[in-house]
Design a protein around this nucleic acid. Structure first.
Length: 783
DNA sequence: ATGCCTCGAGTTCA
DNA sequence: CTCGAGGCAT
């Protein structure tokens, strides 16, 4: 028999409330989401059909409709207190000692719980029904956000069980679980909505929405941690028992809450939670300790607005709010204009942060960071601070969206962006002092020419005073130049000249620098190529070029298409190389370097592999001639004996060679261009030259690690990672920078991080340092 | 075209 | 370390 509507409604409400309770309080979902939605819809329809049976505490009534004009003020009957903070073990021990002294009791039990990074609120229940919710505000007065809080499913609209006080105020924290925060932002980004800065701000912003329907869209959750006013009923004396009671009434209470004894117990709890911190589904900024027994609490009382019986023990902050004082741009070696936020200094995770990169203009636009904004700076797993988001609620009036300047702040040249690229670049090239300095810095760096002692300061001074205009000038510097420079810097800055102060010792740095420069004169081809700072040519590409071509003279005059024969060099990198060597200034610099004594020690003939790769057909393909595909190139190569024959041939001969007229015409048209014809001619000549040389026999002794890809991570004690890499390469291994499916072996040193985790995930063989050393020793290259 | 996998480039602070 | 993008395999 069908139940009466009233009975069905009551049944549905009970089922839905129960599902809510199991989901949010017990953390044990009892019915699938779809089933929950179906029941909710059925209840909604029944209530609509029977308005007389509607009720404010029905699960359908969480989302009201009309947006309120603004929030009313709510005076807290019992103020919402703030807590004292402890940042060190000593402060916690002091806290415990103070209580023990005053209460004359040595053994003290504390209720300890994680301190959620959310928003403190107070919930008022009358007769077991939720009637009002308010923010903490200044502690005495908050804002009435009842309608918004009703949408938070973890907050019961009606208490469970029985024997609840006539009036009950429950205090707790509204927060946004991390996973939901990520999911929400992903959606927001996808649909161009507002991205939340972090979970805490997400929760705060959501509760302050004037339209509860918006709040209902936000994934908010709640934990209860205490009570306020209680009338017409009693709560247990101990805090831990109160939490238990709250849980029974239907409030979510953190399962991490615990009762511990004494200072040692507290500190142990702190460490336990600290270790679990990263794995928790929500953000916490510390733990809270409360004296567990109520009588003791009453005896301890308050200081101003904080209880003497409780304290918050904070973790070092991973995130901090600060303000953007300016957004400046920095010009890199390649001219890349990187915006950097100058911040009001803040402590984040142990260091003072004043700068944070904003990556590029797109990133700024995405976050909409403006000068004057309050922002959140994060120093997460890694070391480098970043701006995680903007606190829009606190944006001052009159800010304007940031825009990339049109001209370089250093040299005044235009700042331009290549089609489809994310980075803007200063077009000043080497006429831009910033780019020149960065080139010098790169040239002198450890992995390039390795000039010890030529730090940023000297590069700055030497180039500002005109001693260094190009990298080649380095090898022209004399001791006198350095001393003169130093004297002029002292004069300029008004500092006391050290030469006068300390006599002979002060010239030591200059001697050392001259010697370091001298030492760097003897180098390897790969270091030299890397040091030149050619765009897209890093260590790895420089090494490949050195191995394949073997000689700077060959490389510096090579037409760009031939670079493409080297694995991992494609059109972009090849063109970049060609462009670099086409600049007379660069060729001059190379001549100067060689003339001033730079010696490249490891010149050798091109590799045999290169010869195998070379041919007229490949050159034609590499030239990227429109409509000339591999097949067409091969037809041309077999019909014409040489490049010269191609250049002399009339266009119709291409058709005779077998090309369709479309390709033949395109090729002929391409050849019309003088520059193309020259490039083809030069490529042909280079090809013949290379083929004429007997290639180096690449008889590589079979190493134990041939064909294996190895990744090094973490710190090693016996040697540096670079050294270990060299030794592994000597045994035939390819040393890669990141772990992927293709990695065969990961060597994990001290404090290995994400790469080790990834290796474990992929089930890749992992060695510790001892295993590595044993292996190296066994194969004759011990430490 | 699409989706890895690498490499290059840029960055902070003590 | 992270992001962007070049190179290459599918």
């Amino acid at each position: 028999m069908t139940p009466t509507p009233a009975a069905r409604i009551a049944d549905l409400r009970r089922q839905l409330e129960d599902a809510n309770y199991r989901y949010h309080v017990l953390d044990e979902p009892s019915i699938p989401d779809a089933e929950y939605d179906r029941l909710l819809r059925e209840l909604d329809e029944l209530e609509a059909a029977h308005p007389d049976l509607a009720a404010a505490d029905s699960p359908t009534q969480r989302v009201g409709s009309a947006p309120a004009g603004k929030f009313a003020e709510v005076r807290h009957a019992i103020p919402m207190l703030s807590l004292g903070n402890a940042f060190s073990d000593e402060e916690v021990q002091d806290f415990v000692r103070r209580i023990a002294d005053r209460l004359k009791r040595p053994a003290l039990a504390f209720s300890a719980e994680p301190k959620l990074d959310g928003l403190a609120i107070s919930l008022r229940y009358e007769g077991g029904v939720f009637v009002q919710g308010a923010t903490r505000g200044d502690g005495a007065t908050g804002e009435d956000v009842t309608l918004n809080l009703r949408t938070v499913k973890a907050i019961p609209l009606k208490l469970r069980g029985k024997d609840w006080p006539a009036v009950l105020e429950v205090r707790g924290e509204v927060y946004m679980p991390r996973a939901d925060f990520e999911k929400y932002n992903e959606q927001a980004r996808l649909h161009g909505g507002k991205v939340l800065a972090n979970p805490r701000n997400g929760a705060a912003g959501s509760l302050r929405q004037l339209d509860p329907r918006i709040t209902a869209q936000r994934p908010l959750a709640f934990f209860a941690y205490g009570t306020g006013l209680v009338e017409g009923g009693e709560l247990p004396d101990a805090h831990s028992a109160t939490l238990k009671q709250l849980r029974a009434w239907g409030f979510p209470v953190s399962s991490l809450s615990d009762v511990v004894e004494g200072a040692d117990g507290l500190l142990d709890y702190y460490r336990r939670i600290g270790e679990a911190r990263d794995g928790l589904p929500f953000d916490i900024d510390g733990v809270v300790y409360k004296l567990d027994d109520g009588e003791g609490q009453r005896e301890m009382g308050f200081v101003s607005r904080a209880p003497r019986w409780a304290i918050a023990h904070k973790f070092p902050a991973q995130e901090q709010a600060t303000t953007v004082e300016a957004i400046e741009i920095q010009i890199g070696r390649t001219g890349a204009a990187t915006p950097v936020a100058r911040l009001t200094p803040v402590h984040v995770a142990g260091v003072i942060v004043t700068n944070a990169t904003l990556h590029n203009a797109d990133q700024i636009a995405r976050l909409d960071v403006r000068v004057g904004d309050h922002v959140i700076v994060r120093r997460a797993g890694d070391v480098i601070p970043e701006v995680a988001g903007v606190i829009l609620d606190r944006r001052p009036d009159g800010t304007v969206p940031w825009q990339m300047p049109t001209h370089c702040p250093v040299c005044g040249a235009e700042i331009v962006r290549e089609e489809g690229e994310a980075v803007w670049r200063c077009s000043g090239e080497l006429s831009c002092p910033a780019q020149r300095k960065e080139s010098l810095r790169h040239f002198a760096s450890r992995r390039a020419m390795d000039i010890e002692g030529l730090g940023d300061r000297y590069i700055e001074d030497l180039s500002d005073l005109g001693y260094l205009t190009s990298i080649a000038d380095l090898y022209k510097l004399t001791l006198d130049d350095l001393l003169e420079m130093k004297r002029r810097v002292d004069e300029r800055d008004g500092t006391t000249p050290e030469t006068v102060k300390a006599g002979k010792v002060a010239t030591k740095w200059a001697d050392n620098l001259i010697e370091a420069i001298d030492r760097s004169r003897t180098t390897t081809l790969e270091r030299f190529l890397f040091a030149l700072g050619i765009q897209h040519v890093g260590e790895s590409t420089a090494k490949a070029l050195a191995q394949w071509f073997g000689d700077l003279q060959r490389i510096r005059h090579l037409p760009w298409p031939l670079f493409k024969r080297v694995p991992d060099i494609g059109g972009e990198v090849a063109r970049s190389l060609g462009h670099f060597f086409d600049q007379p200034g660069n060729q001059q610099a190379i001549d100067d370097l060689l003339a001033r004594g730079v010696v490249i020690g490891d010149t050798h003939p091109p590799s045999g592999k290169l010869r195998a790769e070379l041919g007229l057909a490949t050159v034609l393909v590499d030239l990227e001639i429109p409509k000339v595909t591999r097949i067409r190139a091969e037809q041309l190569a077999s019909a014409f004996p040489s490049v010269d024959a191609l250049l002399d041939a009339p266009a119709h001969n291409f058709v005779t060679a077998g090309l369709p007229s479309e390709s033949a015409n395109a090729f002929a048209a391409w050849l019309e261009d003088e520059a193309n014809a020259t490039l083809l001619s030069r490529s042909g000549a280079a090809l013949e030259e290379l083929l004429a040389i007997t290639p180096e026999d690449v008889a590589i002794a079979a190493g134990p690690l041939d064909g294996k890809t190895v990744v090094l991570t973490g710190g090693l004690a016996a040697m540096s990672r670079d050294e270990a890499g060299e030794k592994l390469e000597a045994l035939g291994a390819k040393v890669a920078g990141s772990v992927s499916k293709k990695t065969h072996l990961v060597v994990a040193g001290e404090a290995a991080g994400s790469k080790l985790a990834k290796a474990q995930e992929l089930g890749i063989e992992i060695w510790d340092e001892a295993q590595l050393l044993a292996f190296l020793a066994k194969h004759g290259s011990g430490a």
